[in-house]
């Protein structure tokens, strides 16, 4: 799979805001197997870009293509197919079910594609240090624990692209490294691409391409 951006620019951007950007209003394409690091200061549209790529918003000019398909023409059904098989995501705002346990939050994603075995959840939770939290209601967990749950959830499906929007904002250094290792490992298994957007350069993320937003 390939994701291509053709002169994509948020319609609400003020003029000249995109000056110097290597992504906005440019022709960029991301291919499978090449990790991308997008470095963006606050307010430069990092989350907007990730939401555009995932199809949550479409208030932009230009085109975003999944292979040769312009996603502006996708309906909810079509997006569901791509999201189930090809693109996974860790949201900045996590987007977990607060009234469910961490395990339920992970299971609901796992059963959708049955890509991972059920026991892998426990193993991953153990690696990221939230195994004891699995049966706790999500809303009662700390933000850091929830962020790790969101990372594990993103790994419960097959994907060609893994979109990460400031995935470590609530983690300490040790947990960041562990989480990154796990994601890179899982991505390699799938020969997939990680697109990581963060405020600054993350040294433990091995990326082939770095772009400034």
């Amino acid at each position: 799979m390939q994701i291509a951006l053709q002169k994509v620019l948020p319609v609400f951007f003020e003029e000249n805001k995109n000056d110097g950007s290597q992504v906005w209003n440019k022709i960029v394409s991301f291919s499978k197997g090449q990790n991308i690091h997008i470095i963006a200061p606050s307010g430069s549209g990092k989350t907007t870009l990730i939401h555009f790529l995932y199809g949550l918003r479409n208030d932009y000019s230009g085109h975003i293509l999944y292979d040769a398909n312009d996603i502006k023409h996708f309906d909810a059904e079509k997006f569901s197919i791509w999201r189930k098989q090809h693109i996974s995501i860790v949201f900045q705002d996590l987007r977990l079910f607060p009234e469910q346990t961490i395990l339920q939050n992970l299971e609901i994603k796992r059963v959708l594609s049955s890509f991972q075995a059920a026991e892998n959840i426990a193993a991953m939770a153990e690696r990221l240090g939230i195994k004891t939290k699995l049966h706790q209601l999500c809303k009662n967990c700390s933000y850091g624990e929830q962020q790790r749950a969101a990372i594990i959830r993103a790994l419960q499906q097959p994907f060609d692209f893994l979109l990460l929007d400031e995935p470590f904002s609530h983690l300490d250094e040790l947990n960041r490294v562990k989480a990154m290792e796990l994601m890179e490992e899982e991505s390699k298994k799938r020969n997939a691409t990680i697109i990581l957007a963060d405020l600054r350069e993350i040294e433990y993320f091995k990326s082939e391409i770095t772009l400034h937003l």
């Binding site: 059904e77 997006f79 569901s80 999201r83 189930k84 987007r95 079910f97 994603k109 959708l112």
Partner: peptide, 15 residues
């Protein structure tokens, strides 16, 4: 909210 999140996670609206 829950249904919206299910759709975001890749659940098919038809299904």
């Amino acid at each position: 909210d829950n249904l919206q999140l299910l759709l975001t996670l890749g659940y098919s609206p038809k299904w």
